[in-house]
Design a protein around this nucleic acid. Structure first.
Ligand code: SF4
Ligand code: SF4
Lengths: 152, 152
DNA sequence: GTATATTAAGACTAAATACTCTTAAATATT
DNA sequence: AATATTTAAGAGTATTTAGTCTTAATATAC
């Protein structure tokens, strides 16, 4: 799996926040997010703390508190969230799990893989939370997905 | 990580076998493979058992025994090994970790992602063990990779 | 047949990831 | 000030993945 489950949770919560953001002045409680996404409240809290620390979200304690996007949804991209949660491994390490790659020591898959890897990174950099929120016609990201095609 | 460590071990051992196969009549001991690849012998044994069960490898017990490719290296592709070890999840599940995808219920990333996913699968189906063995000029797959760019 | 070399299989341990629970800190309302 | 609401932080548990170790089964050589 390219992304950790934690990372997917963070993404889904971020897209949900983006879809809520009309004025963008109000905070949404993590409880509300966790209810809508059907993710454990306590776990989501931990995940979102990472996003808050990396300043993609802002949080506020107490009544009427919660979290909100720190910037406009159109200026936060997929990759921002991935890097905040999963770190840079997607960029630095080979997604095939063969670290130590590079021009110095390309492995036998490098020619075929490096282009694909670049495409993935480019895609993640190009798509913003706003894009995802606008395109979520089915609410797929916003619910716990039902396994239609069972993968093992 | 797109592939499990177990899967990468299996791939590396398979490529090594492919590179050895001149006549293809002889068995290579798992001990020799594990020494060259610097992978734990016992663990590699378990991994290769999967490949043997799915008939990508043939094994033989006793003196002069070991494992060998069951077919010509040019007729076993990357995807064969991946499916044998990691199963079909790469194909059926979304590599982004969002199961339940498909035409019925495309998530907001589907347009961007499905093409990339297809490219990855196609690449894995197109490249054979022979290709990889021929292209391993640096022996990268055949050693425990040294982390040049440290990813976390 | 006895010893030796090898894979097969299963139980066990370790590490990483995912998840839960409790307590503390901050803020608002009264 | 007291209480309620909310995130922050940290300890603890569970599950999955990775890795080890022991024993069994199979084949060869003498
Ligand atoms: S495919 Fe490229 S990036 Fe990946 S291990 Fe090989 S050389 Fe490195
Ligand atoms: S719709 Fe496409 S991108 Fe979304 S989860 Fe399914 S396969 Fe993945």
């Amino acid at each position: 799996m390219l992304l950790s489950k934690t990372c997917i949770y963070g993404l889904r919560a971020s897209v949900l926040l983006a879809s809520k953001k009309q004025g963008g002045l109000e905070y949404t409680t993590i409880r509300e997010l966790s209810d809508e996404l059907e993710i454990s409240f306590h776990f989501l809290t931990k995940v979102l703390q990472k996003l808050t620390k990396s300043e993609l979200l802002e949080s506020y304690k107490g009544p009427n508190g919660g979290v909100k996007l720190a910037r406009d949804a159109s200026s936060i991209n997929f990759m921002d969230v991935v890097r905040s949660i999963d770190g840079d491994s997607l960029i630095h390490e080979c997604a095939l799990g063969l670290p130590g790659c590079g021009l110095l020591k390309p492995c036998p898959l490098h020619d075929q893989w490096s282009g694909l890897k670049m495409n993935i990174i480019t895609m993640m950099q190009d798509i913003t939370l706003k894009d995802m929120a606008n395109n979520d016609s089915t609410g797929h990201l916003l619910k716990n997905p039902i396994q239609i095609i069972s993968g093992k």
